[in-house]
Design a protein around this nucleic acid. Structure first.
Length: 503
RNA sequence: GGCUGGGUAGCUCAGCUGGUUAGAGCGCACGACUCAUAAUCGUGAGGUCGGGGGUUCGAGUCCCCCCCCAGCUACCA
């Protein structure tokens, strides 16, 4: 069974920020989950490097577009390891193989009769040598970059016959109700489709353009969105030297995208694939914006929160945890340094970290570190079905709910400690058997919880499971009662507290 | 304007096909305990479930109207 998950490819006309990190982390959680379930996983991320903004930025800096792309792509490439993201490949749309793949697929689209010549009309800036969309045009019909008055012009373009796919897309949405998740986004995309589809331009005049050449018309390059979308498919042909992974991993299981690019992924993308005779993805999972002071976290606004500061002070796991915990995945959510520290302190340090400390300390104190072998654990009813519930949530793209389900058990374990009060049991000779069960149950609960958290907190999970001498974090090990821990030492604080105030 | 979501305790939010005193987490107050990273556990505050009307034996939970917020209503990536 194969599982393919992608992030959008990040546009190199800017620096990596929290928004990029968010998407990559979400994709990584799914990738890690499925990988440890024993599935054949392919996790793709990369950079989008063509298009006018990159060309213009390069020009401004006196560089070639390729040089600028090379420079910025490195920064995005470095992002993944910093997030502990386990991507299998990093695609760049300037890769020769990608360009060939784009040309090949879109040639097929043309051969299949879904491309035709048309005229694109719009506001044209002679300085940019390109058209501006209605909503980016400044008051007085001026260019947002050069502030000169735009002219109304038209250009001969190759068009993709999107209108021919209205019925097929509607059928797709009917047959695959979970094609777009969550459901609000599906409604939005479907409404767009049902509102009637127009053909869209597939190419742009090549004069000053930076893109993939149209094979049947070298004077044009493909409109950057089609070039970009195709990355999900083209990467498979060359991600692994000497092997074409396309058969193995196409179609994708999840494309994770931000809500700003919903239309491209939920409408244009499946239509292009249909036009090319290729299978469409199983799901497009749409997430919302991270808000800071009620503003969208975006490269177009200056209010970026640097994730690297958090990583430096706390490590990556807390960042991964925080973003998926505090913001309901799919919706918009407020993020702040204060909220981060609050979560870190009360949930990571106090709930989970302290649980590991107190449980391991008790086993050491009352049983010299030997985990009692018992006939049956307590709490089996509390953990019954947990792993399946987590998996079910993840299959629906409900990353926050899955995490919540696990956290309910973390709290349950702390409550169980109070209910059992091992320190009292330890004083009574007659209650030694009960103490054994309590300690064994706590260790097993801790182990289970850490296995389930592995996709979210990979480093911490590995550290603790290693310390417990039960490093197996496979799906089989996620079942409560699997056991395997026989000896423990006092565990060092998993999430040490930081006295200083926020950075 | 139309469409899609949403408006529930100070804060962030759960509440499926309508049914006992409307829930969780955080924060706050008080209490308990001592294994633990001064962590944890318990209790409480008494919220007109956006407003109004209706259906029903009974409605955050269904219907109608209104108010407010967000997004979408096509070619910036």
């Amino acid at each position: 069974m194969s599982f393919t998950v992608t992030t959008p490819i990040y546009y190199v006309n800017g620096a990596p920020h929290l928004g990029h990190a968010y998407t990559t982390i979400a994709a990584d959680v799914l990738a890690r989950h499925h990988r440890r379930c024993g599935e054949d996983v392919f996790f793709l991320t990369g950079t989008d490097e063509h298009g006018e903004p990159v060309a213009l930025a390069a020009e401004k800096q006196g560089m070639t577009p390729q040089a600028l792309a090379d420079q910025n792509a490195e920064r995005f490439k470095a992002l993944a390891p910093q997030l502990d993201a386990s991507n299998d490949f990093f695609i760049r749309t300037t890769d020769e193989q990608h360009k060939l793949g784009v040309q090949q697929v879109l040639q097929t689209v043309k051969d299949n009769g879904f491309v035709e010549l048309g005229r694109y009309e719009g506001w044209y800036c002679p300085r940019c040598a390109d058209f501006k969309s209605e909503n980016e045009v400044e008051d007085g019909d001026r260019c947002p970059i050069h502030h000169i008055v735009l002219t109304r012009e038209s250009e001969e373009n190759w068009f993709f016959k999107l209108s021919a796919f209205q019925e097929r897309l509607e059928a797709l949405y009917a047959e695959q109700p979970d094609f777009v998740l969550p459901v609000q986004r599906r409604n939005e995309a479907l409404a767009f489709i049902q509102g009637g589809l127009q053909d869209v331009s597939l190419s742009r005049g090549a004069k000053l353009q930076w893109g993939v050449q149209v094979p049947w018309d070298p004077e044009h390059v493909f409109y950057v969105w089609f070039d970009a979308l195709l990355n999900y498919y083209t990467a498979l042909a060359y991600a692994k030297p000497g092997e074409d992974l396309t058969e193995r991993f196409w179609p994708a299981t999840f494309h994770i995208v931000g809500k700003d690019i919903l239309k491209f992924h939920c409408v244009f993308w499946p239509a292009i694939l249909m036009a090319a005779g290729l299978p469409v993805p199983q799901h497009v999972l749409v997430h919302g914006y991270l808000l800071m002071n009620d503003e969208k976290m975006s490269k177009s606004l200056g209010n970026v929160l640097d994730p690297f500061t958090i990583i430096e002070r706390f490590g990556v796991d807390p960042l991964r945890f925080y973003l998926l915990r505090d913001v309901q995945f799919g919706g918009d959510g407020e993020v702040s340094a204060e909220a981060f520290e609050q979560r870190y302190e009360s949930e990571l340090a106090n709930d989970l970290g302290n649980l590991a400390s107190r449980v391991s300390a008790m086993v050491v104190k009352y049983r010299d570190g030997a985990v009692p072998a018992v006939g049956a654990f307590d709490l089996t009813e509390d953990f019954d079905g947990l792993a399946d519930a987590v998996a079910a949530h993840l299959d629906r793209g409900e990353l926050t709910q899955a995490l919540e389900a696990i956290w309910v058990r973390v709290r349950r374990l702390n409550r169980y400690v109070e209910e059992q009060a091992p320190w009292k049991l330890a004083k009574d000779e007659a209650l030694q058997e009960q103490l054994d069960v309590a300690l064994a149950t706590l260790i097993e609960g801790l182990r289970t919880v850490m296995v389930l958290l592995a996709p979210y907190l990979p480093a911490t999970s590995a550290t603790l499971l290693e310390a417990l001498g039960a490093p197996d974090d496979s799906w089989a090990a996620a079942a409560f009662g699997t056991g395997g821990v026989t000896q423990v030492a006092k565990v060092a604080p998993l999430f040490p507290k930081h006295d200083a105030t926020p950075a």
